[in-house]
Amino acid sequence: MTLFRLAGDLSHVLAILLLLYKIWTTKSAAGISGKTQLMFCMVYVTRYLDLFTSFISVYNSTMKVLFISASVATVYLIYFKFKATYDGNHDTFRMEFVIVPALILALIWNYAFTFFEISWAFSIFLEAVAILPQLFMVTKTGEAENITSHYLFALGSYRALYILNWIDRYYFEGHWDPIAVTAGIVQTVLYGDFFYLYFTRVIKGRKLQVLP
């Protein structure tokens, strides 16, 4: 466990809790893409199938349970409890345009042609693009609430920190995970535009607005 990975995981936990906090306290899913949260649910379920078959550490298992349960709770809040506040008209990204390619790529590029490894690779590829509906929604609505911006910043930072972790592991352990690294770089690059807006606007106390 490198420091970068721990920081990444904590940033990830922060993002997940920030989102739950925002929806629960404002009793509203306004500005939140339900499709992105649905895909994150798929990401965690398909990635952590080994939750009961391979034990890495208490930390690892605890985080897996946390990620799966928090993402299910988030989807429940968006699509059931606060359904009336879900802004479906602005959440129009076609999920199949990312789910199908991720599945096809996972059938081609995986570490073993087994159900588990294909599921794991699918999860990694899907995670890289799962944020697209949310980013599209921010551009469509033209702005994001501050707490949503902080959520996206924490979420984008988590995989960016993992990249530092992978560099660290390659340097000290001499091996790396090509599928995770490739997808992780794509995932982080997709936040590029958002990071720019975040640092030039939100940090200066202004609302995140996507200039028309």
């Binding site: 990635r47 080994d50 078959t53 087994t114 794991w120 993992y162 972790n165 995970d177 995770a180």
Partner: peptide, 10 residues
Amino acid sequence: LGLAHIHDEL
């Protein structure tokens, strides 16, 4: 569920 590749990262 072939565990060909133990994934130790989240």
